[in-house]
């Protein structure tokens, strides 16, 4: 169920964010379904390959997409078991996201372009900072909720109860920072800019075109969805009771997340690159503080 929702709705999620930004900017903005149009358009096009590239470049968007989809198989709907659930599955989920990153970085290096190399370098830097925060956060959750798997962790995070609940807030903030950084959102990166020197994620895919680009765009939408739903899973206290109610609550929460991201992107400016690492370290520290809270 989670898989189908994600496959269908993740571009919409992006569209919502854009819409909200437009609202704040006082513009009309592009249609909500613009990303679907984009994908369809790209799929209908031919491709241009750089003469430097090899089969790695051609393969990588699809490896990335496969990794994202596989990760979605593991991702549960909060409160429900996913299709594949097992002890420590969150680690596998993160590893699949790393596979995604691996393939995109390789594709970027395959072009031989210095811009893409730079983007790749930044990409691995941020993941280097984000990964400990992610793992630590989930250690806290796993320990606090006494669960091995995502299903157990996300089923009712607010059952931690009492004073320990504060830990959850810390984790929530920490995860949110990671979410923004990993998906190249403002204030870490501006997905809409076209000044290559400032970009991270977008610059890596400069040379992709046609269906390949469609795959990559779709993949990044899925990635945002994955991290977003993880965040929603631990940050929203509402579990409806019946399945359909829960789906509605989840979707509502996702809309809420899109609103938050949109607001943040509207009111904040992009920070200097050097500050990004500070923010991500902050995420790790927050997770650490949460851990102390949980133990204490």
């Amino acid at each position: 169920m989670s898989l189908i929702l994600a496959l269908l709705l993740s571009p919409l999620f992006l569209g919502m964010i854009v819409k909200i930004k437009a609202f704040f900017a006082g513009r009309k903005g592009q249609p909500l379904l613009q990303f679907y149009y984009d994908l369809v358009k790209l799929l209908q096009k031919g491709v241009v390959y750089s003469s430097s590239t090899t089969v790695v470049f051609r393969l990588s968007p699809w490896i990335a997409l496969a990794a994202a989809v596989t990760a979605l198989c593991i991702l549960p709907l909060p409160g429900y078991s996913s299709w594949i659930s097992f002890p420590g599955d969150f680690f596998v989920l993160f590893a699949l996201l790393a596979v995604l990153r691996f393939s995109l970085v390789c594709a970027a290096l395959d072009t031989g372009s210095s811009f893409e190399g730079m983007g790749a370098s930044r990409e691995v830097l941020f993941s280097f900072l984000a990964e400990p925060a992610l793992l630590l956060s989930f250690l806290v959750l796993s320990f606090g909720l006494e669960g091995y798997s995502l299903h157990e962790i996300l089923s009712n995070p607010f059952s931690i109860g009492g004073g320990k609940l504060v830990a959850l807030y810390f984790i929530s903030v920490s995860l949110f920072i990671v979410l923004l950084a990993e998906n190249s959102r403002i204030p870490f990166d501006d997905p809409n800019t076209h000044l290559e020197l400032t970009m991270i994620h977008e610059v890596m895919v400069l040379d992709h075109s046609g269906p390949d680009l469609a795959g990559i765009l779709y993949t990044s939408a899925l990635k945002l969805w994955i991290l977003g739903s993880l965040w929603v899973g631990i940050s929203s206290p509402w579990r409806g009771g019946s399945f359909y109610l829960d789906v509605l609550v989840f979707l509502g929460s996702m809309i809420f997340l899109a609103v938050i991201i949109g607001i943040i992107e509207s009111i904040l400016a992009r920070v200097r690159l050097i500050r990004v690492s500070h923010a991500l370290s902050l995420a790790t520290v927050l997770a650490g503080v949460a851990l102390l809270w949980i133990i204490g």
């Binding site: 096009k45 491709v47 241009v48 390959y49 750089s50 003469s51 430097s52 072009t111 372009s113 040379d207």
Partner: peptide, 9 residues
């Protein structure tokens, strides 16, 4: 579809 080859942008 057409597949073209060109130098890296």
């Amino acid at each position: 579809r057409p597949i073209e080859t060109s130098p890296t942008w």
